[in-house]
């Protein structure tokens, strides 16, 4: 299948994650292909967010969280002590369930990342980054005349695209999205999905979603998590037409619990 000849961008090997004494992920092995969308699905509390937070080491900020095992990006270990976490997060952008613009202007929301990463030296360079990022996030036309207004003055769907633009502003390679559309209406959702289609040409995308239909629409590969374990990973087509595992089938057909 087409999955075979894709380059692996992210590889999790024997990944175990604990919150204090409670284990949240059990021996996760998962390959994520470059310039492709991988969807992660599974019931609430199964560890999807925990998993994607491992990819940019966001779990580091949770005191009781301990991560064991390996995650390689382009073949190099990110759990290594030597890895500069700031650099890592520049490479791996993240978009959350609730749009969370900074309490700053639309412009500054985008400029913030490039400033801390030292990506622009002059004002016109920064203007350029802001414009391209907003264009890539399909928001430019809607905000170009109000860049000074607060990010929080935008609608929910626009805020989410602002957050995507913010993630894109530091030229990441990977974009992690944790239920990016769960607070959005169908039109805003369609815009984000259209954007995902566009972005996958240049970026590797991992999306957590509770919408089976969304997983089918946007992703090429799907992983089903259940109680901290990966139950099945396959092409999205296979998972939703003819999954191999009965638990996967029960979950996606609404036969759980």
């Amino acid at each position: 299948m087409e999955l075979e000849n894709k380059k692996i961008k992210i590889q999790a090997k024997n990944l175990n994650v604990y919150y204090g004494a409670k284990q949240a992920l059990f021996n996760i092995n998962l390959e994520i292909n470059q310039k492709e969308v991988t969807a992660l699905i599974g019931p609430s509390g199964c560890g999807k967010s925990t998993f994607i937070r491992c990819i940019n080491r966001m779990n580091d900020v949770i005191d009781i969280c301990k991560v064991d095992g390996s995650i390689e990006i382009d073949g190099s270990e990110i759990n290594d002590k030597k890895v500069d976490v700031v650099m890592l997060r520049e490479k791996i952008g993240m978009v959350f369930q609730k749009p969370n613009p900074f309490p700053k202007s639309i412009y500054d929301n985008i400029a913030y990342g490039p400033i801390i990463h030292g990506l622009a030296e002059e004002k016109n360079q920064m203007d350029n980054i802001v414009e391209t990022s907003l264009k890539k996030a399909a928001l430019w036309d809607e905000v170009k005349d109000r860049l000074d207004e607060p990010g929080t003055s935008l609608s929910g769907g626009q805020q989410q695209r602002l957050c995507i633009a913010r993630a894109l502003s530091v030229s990441p390679e990977v974009i992690l999205m944790d239920e990016p559309c769960s607070a959005l209406d169908p039109i805003a959702t369609a815009k984000i999905e259209e954007l995902i289609d566009e972005l996958k040409k240049s970026y590797t995308i991992v999306i957590v979603t509770h919408s089976m239909a969304q997983a089918v629409r946007v992703s090429q590969k799907t992983g089903f998590f259940h109680m901290g374990k990966i139950i099945e990973v396959d092409s999205t087509d296979k998972i939703f037409k003819n999954p191999s595992n009965k638990m996967t089938q029960d979950y996606i057909t609404g036969r759980f619990g």
Binding site: M212, A213, V216, I239, F240, K241, N242, P243, T248, Q249, I252, T253, G254
Partner: peptide, 10 residues
């Protein structure tokens, strides 16, 4: 109504 998946779709 259901957007059937997997075995239901089949």
């Amino acid at each position: 109504k259901r957007a059937p998946m997997a075995v239901d779709l089949r």
